[in-house]
Design a protein around this nucleic acid. Sequence first.
DNA 1: ACCGATAAAAAGTCAGACTTATTCGTCACA
DNA 2: TGTGACGAATAAGTCTGACTTTTTATCGGT
Lengths: 233, 233
Amino acid sequence: MSTTGRGLHGRVLDTLGPEITAGEYPPGSVLRTDELAQRFDVSRSVMREVVRVLESMHLVESRRRVGVTVLPACEWNVYDPQVIRWRLAGADRPRQLRSLTVLRSAIEPVAAGLAARNATAEQCAELTECALGMVANSRGHKLEGYLFHDVAFHRVILTASGNEMFARLGDVVAEVLAGRTHHDVMFEDPDPAAVTLHVQLAEAVRARDAARAEELTREITEGALQELDILAP
Amino acid sequence: MSTTGRGLHGRVLDTLGPEITAGEYPPGSVLRTDELAQRFDVSRSVMREVVRVLESMHLVESRRRVGVTVLPACEWNVYDPQVIRWRLAGADRPRQLRSLTVLRSAIEPVAAGLAARNATAEQCAELTECALGMVANSRGHKLEGYLFHDVAFHRVILTASGNEMFARLGDVVAEVLAGRTHHDVMFEDPDPAAVTLHVQLAEAVRARDAARAEELTREITEGALQELDILAP
DNA sequence: ACCGATAAAAAGTCAGACTTATTCGTCACA
DNA sequence: TGTGACGAATAAGTCTGACTTTTTATCGGT
């Protein structure tokens, strides 16, 4: 699921970007555009465009007479979906997953509260549909089906909140949930308690009970955090 | 305080970027690299680099034989500091400010709770220092001094949380606070209650009282939200 | 009305020449 | 010996023009 896709530019970016986020070049390292162009066997024009994009992500800084300097991780645009994907694919995946799960635990309860106030009838319907889909796939090792509905559920919540900043975290949540299912251990069926919470949350939103929606989501994200603690204590 | 700064590339970006985020080109509009290059009187190389950066922000999409298509706002990387700055400088500043304040209300309480657990002794000291600075500037129309310490205070909280996703929101919070002081109405001195809350928060973090820190921060952000409701009901 | 060949359009890529800013080393001077 | 100014080296920045590739629209044939 690589977004960058076509073009020489994209292919170079998909190699160099992950290398940087993986920390292969320590902060302060200096790269030269010409050398990079040679290494990737592309023209300087293409290489310059790549560097410009990396610069806009604050992964590097380009200065005359000095070269392309790799910036420390604290400078990176860690909310850039591309950067998130690169880091999730790299070595510090666990730390990244942890950061994002904590972020979820802050955002989603508030988003759910807002969703309970703002969700349209259609969104409420989607929500219950997703919850039912989760129930239907909660037993018998149908993990993929479960994941699909789980992702859709949280996307609807975030969108229905009516806050664009929340809505745009849908992809991040999708990555985190997918990561849990695919990479990390999850041999057995999902926790029945979590499934129930989702069903109740759908009900709470439909009933316009903001406080309850918020509390239920807090329990869901709390579960996600505990899951991480069990995996890496 | 424009970050992009030097170079033809940066100047073009600082013109075209805000135009797009301001909605001057409706979603689906098609721009042509050559025409843009003519308009800004730069070479195609420079223009291509600008387009590439805009593309990495998901503001536009470049396709062969079609041109550079402006994407709908729901696709934009709204967490990109550059995009945030452009939007805050544009027409839908109020909506943006509202979104960001809601975001704060979700993030900061959790961050404060974590800060109470993780803050170093040094960070605790900085916190009280900032709080004292706020007190000292809370009367007599010393708004700039107050803002300075307010921004520093919230930065320390976010950093001390130990979560990089939270820490990187420091700039966003700074923009929001600065916006409130500079653009929006704030003739009088800041609310004394808010000042007190900050002092208490510094104490709570030093005392490692996570629950109290979280609750106090919730009151602070709640106040920020109410302020917005008063300004634009 | 449908389908395939063809032509046009715009981005993508490349190569090379030239410009400009920055840094570093050197040399003269205090 | 230290310091500051000057100059050379360097790597990014910019421009130009030619060529390639992909996609779309048009046109002609069935």
